[in-house]
Design a protein around this nucleic acid. Structure first.
Lengths: 147, 147
DNA sequence: CAGCATCCTGACTGATACTG
DNA sequence: CAGTATCAGTCAGGATGCTG
């Protein structure tokens, strides 16, 4: 187990029926950061997105999520299951068979993630351009500094 | 420098003028993951949110972002600046003074992040409840297994 | 097929000391 | 004030081998 300790066992944050009309600031950020760290890791998002289409078995899932190791898929799925985002169904057939599917809770998360995904697809090239420009300027400055 | 290598110097992904009507799948995930990893680290989000209110100076910013070390604030700001999300303005006064502000690009990112933030605030308690229930079941199973 | 246990590398992060 | 440099600890993640 572990994986980021899997902690926060006893932590209850403020109730959800609060006003959320503006972008949260201050201590709210920690809660948002929590979710971002949760879904922002290397694999969770991809697993969620793949499962959004349809339930899948373990190795099927593994083939869909390109580059994931067997261990990390196991870990990721376990955490997602712990958080109630993914449901695990074991069929006791001759070769054991396990199905993974998004829960309604998981689907609800996939919506705001979708918003971010749209931003990403629309602006990632701009972001890379910015990096190139920044690096170009930096190298130029380095050159002039060395000259 | 470095910080996740600060690489991807030569990477050009597919153009942004693609159809984005459904939740992206497959290889698109990598791009989304890229953004999530970008904004999903421990501090970037909080810095963006704090700067969303108003521009701030270095130590002012540091006081707003609770718990961040001076080094990590420096690093985070540098990466955000590199990505064109934050603008750095140096005033050559007697004690040097540096202002940080969100660029329009940064503001555009803060919108989808806001969607996720709203989800987080509304559902984080559910998520923790799910964890508690999962852990409770697990411990119960452990007990029965040991008995 | 599905999953656990172990070892190992590297990235993130903090703490501390030092510079212009 | 606004950083840079260095040391050190923790942890995500990959690779491999083994179980039921």
């Amino acid at each position: 187990m572990r994986l980021s300790e899997l902690r926060q066992k006893r932590i209850f944050l403020r109730p959800s029926h609060m006003n959320v009309t503006t972008l949260p600031t201050g201590r709210h950020c920690r809660q948002v950061s929590e979710v971002l760290n949760r879904v922002g890791d290397k694999w969770s998002m991809q697993v969620i997105v793949v499962l959004r289409d349809q339930p899948r078995r373990f190795n099927d899932l593994r083939r869909q999520v390109n580059g994931i190791s067997q261990q990390m898929l196991t870990r990721t799925l376990k955490v997602l299951e712990r958080d109630g985002l993914v449901e695990r169904t074991v069929r006791t057939t001759s070769p054991p068979q396990v199905d993974y599917a998004l829960t309604p809770f998981g689907h609800s998360l996939s919506e705001p993630v979708r918003e971010l995904a749209i931003w990403a697809l629309a602006n990632l090239d701009t972001l890379y351009d910015n990096r190139l420009r920044y690096d170009a300027n930096n190298e130029a400055n380095d050159d002039t500094n060395q000259a």
